[in-house]
Design a protein around this nucleic acid. Structure first.
Length: 274
DNA sequence: CGGGCGGCCTGGAGGC
DNA sequence: TGCCTCCAGGCCGCCC
């Protein structure tokens, strides 16, 4: 569920609390995450280092540390980060605690354990296997309709799946792909390689507007998304098609439908999305 | 080789 | 009421 706006929301809330802090303790309570945690290595590479800044690449949160190190966090589907008082009782599924030179600590919870936490050398980040093949950042200036159109040339897979391909554009997950396609009036099953330049213009704008809107709302909280201070997002009330199967389209008199594409639910209006 | 799909996980919802 | 199945979806490996 955490897509770009949710990860960015967490980044912003964490940056306020963590920037400038020094790591003094790392407690791994469960090492079986998506990538198995290595407690000794984590301690060796994290303890004593200071947090310089918080960044983000795709859905990865980047905690930039002193000495050229980055602590990389991925929330998977159910991951949560919270900066809370050290003495607060542990919530269920708290897998990692990172202590700081303050009275608070960072807690990483993830009941489904799809999340990740590892450390990379900053100068090696772009060569890291999980980063080397990532596509454009949708909110960057380099992301353009021409880029999308060029990457889609000859691609026969549905445009919905194309938008969710992190090798093309990052951060667009299942919810915002449906929302952006609806906003652009593009049918999700249309082959990516068969969209006109005008449609790429609309879709490009729709992706950015959707992500910016969600960001302004602090993300979408459908089940359990929270930022690092525990606040919920508000964008769920602005969703136009996602989760609205059978309900009326908010733009025309059509009905929102649900189909499964590549194993994922897609919501769209069969009337105004062509 | 592009693209679809299953596996990884667990909690919650819905069916019987 | 309780048990079972299904679904949620980011990412990757596998397979056609």
């Amino acid at each position: 569920m955490p897509e770009l706006p949710e990860v960015e929301t967490v980044r912003r809330s964490l940056a306020r609390s963590l920037t400038g802090r020094r790591i003094v303790a790392v407690d791994v309570r469960e090492r079986r995450l998506r990538t198995p945690l290595r407690p000794a290595e984590l301690r060796r590479r994290l303890i004593g280092r200071r947090i310089r800044a918080l960044g983000r690449r795709a859905k990865y949160l980047l905690v930039h540390l002193s000495d050229d190190q980055i602590m990389v966090l991925h929330l998977g589907m159910s991951g949560r980060l919270a900066y809370v008082a050290r003495h607060k009782p542990l919530e269920p599924h708290t897998h990692v605690r990172v202590g700081f030179d303050s009275t608070k600590e960072l807690r990483f919870r993830d009941h489904r354990r799809f999340g990740m936490l590892f450390v990379v050398q900053e100068s090696h980040l772009e060569r890291h296997p999980r980063f080397a093949r990532l596509g454009a950042e949708p909110l960057d200036a380099s992301f353009s309709p021409q880029y999308l159109s060029a990457r889609a040339r000859g691609v026969r897979k549905p445009v919905k799946n194309f938008l969710m391909d992190a090798g093309v554009v990052v951060g667009v997950g299942n919810i915002y792909a449906s929302e952006a396609l609806h906003r652009a009036g593009v049918h999700p099953a249309r082959a990516a390689g068969r969209l006109s330049a005008a449609r790429w213009e609309r879709l490009h704008a729709a992706v950015r507007e959707t992500l910016h809107g969600a960001l302004s709302a602090g993300g979408t909280t459908l089940n359990d998304f929270r930022d690092a201070d525990g606040s919920e997002g508000e964008f769920q009330v602005e969703l136009r098609v996602y989760g609205r199967e059978g309900e009326p389209c908010l733009r025309c008199s059509g009905t929102v439908r649900r189909v499964v594409q590549a194993g994922r639910s897609t919501f769209y209006c069969g009337r105004c999305q062509r």
